[in-house]
């Protein structure tokens, strides 16, 4: 077994497991390749990978950086405005109150885009007897509800943080902390 481990890098079970895995996969792929349409599916697959890694990924990474930058600038200004002798309440970070509804909304869009963009209009109508137009409205409504819910949660957290700060800082700090 020593030479195998030296030249292969793992035990015989590892090698046999992987060979069995590739055999099953190769058999499965050959059964699909004979059918029409699948070549274009694989082309789409590669196109989506390229789209995600080179366009979507940099885009949402950049959007998140912008969001974080905005939060940091706001927090900085917020601290500077205060009188130095009055301790500032710990700021409640808001960035995740944007990230949560944005991520959920984006995942829903990604998962249900055929309905939202009416890609199966005719088939949908024939199958269900209803129009596919409604899903864009549904998505916008859900997105709106998510952002409103998130904003309300943020305001509640802000209120709690202010009240805690007021209690801890004593009555003298109230007027300043309200600014």
């Amino acid at each position: 077994m020593k030479p195998l481990r030296r030249y292969y890098g793992a035990g015989p079970l590892h090698l046999m497991g992987l060979l069995a895995c590739f055999a099953v996969a190769a058999y499965a792929v050959t059964r699909v390749l004979g059918e029409s349409g699948w070549v274009s599916v694989f082309q789409w697959f590669v196109a989506c990978l390229v789209f995600h890694d080179f366009i979507a990924w940099p885009a949402y990474t950049a959007a998140d950086r912008l969001l974080l930058g905005a939060q940091q600038r706001r927090t900085g200004r917020h601290q500077k405005r205060r009188l130095p002798e009055v301790p500032a309440p710990a700021p409640v970070p808001w960035v995740n109150h944007v990230r949560f509804p944005a991520v959920i909304s984006a995942v829903l869009l990604g998962m249900f885009f055929p309905l939202i963009f009416r890609l199966s209009r005719a088939v949908y109508l024939g199958t269900t007897g209803f129009s596919e137009n409604v899903y864009l409205t549904n998505w916008l409504m859900v997105t709106g509800a998510l952002f409103v819910g998130s904003a309300v949660t943020y305001l509640l957290r802000l209120g709690l943080a202010r009240r805690r700060h007021r209690r801890e800082a004593g009555p003298g700090a109230v007027t300043h902390a309200r600014r």
Binding site: A20, V24, S36, L119
Partner: peptide
């Protein structure tokens, strides 16, 4: 979502076997 343009049954079926081979 009725947006499928290929033989879904064979693709999803054989795809599952290839995926499960790697998954195991």
């Amino acid at each position: 979502d009725y947006a499928n343009r290929t033989n879904f049954y064979s693709g999803h079926f054989y795809g599952a076997w290839a995926f499960m081979a790697g998954f195991v």
